[in-house]
Amino acid sequence: MKDLLLRLEPVIWVLFGAGILVGTMLITGWILIVGLAVPTGLVSADALAFGRAYGLASHFVGRLVLLGLIALPMWKGAHHMRHLSIDHGGAERDAVVAPILYGIATIGSIAAIVAVARL
């Protein structure tokens, strides 16, 4: 497992890098509006009415943006959580922790692809 992780390290790092760079840029607006402004009533719920939301999301660009803002932060999250674990004396358990975290990000990413593809 350690050898496999070592060989995948460049791929993981690229996904992490995309997550922290592109993911941060995409997720901020989502958090602002979908996470905060609409639920608190700051912005009318009409903005996210089913028809409008579906129309935006099922557009080619909409699908790509959604895929990016779902999957990329997961890789940033998984990688940073792995480092957090190592920093707190987790070098020994890394052979277990890392595959679990990256596994979660992989499953989440596949689910994200399905979620945007079926719109």
Partner: peptide
């Protein structure tokens, strides 16, 4: 750099 002591272990703290 990609070997056992890999540069990717760095978390850019």
């Amino acid at each position: 750099f990609r070997g056992e002591g890999t540069v990717f272990s760095c978390s850019y703290a």
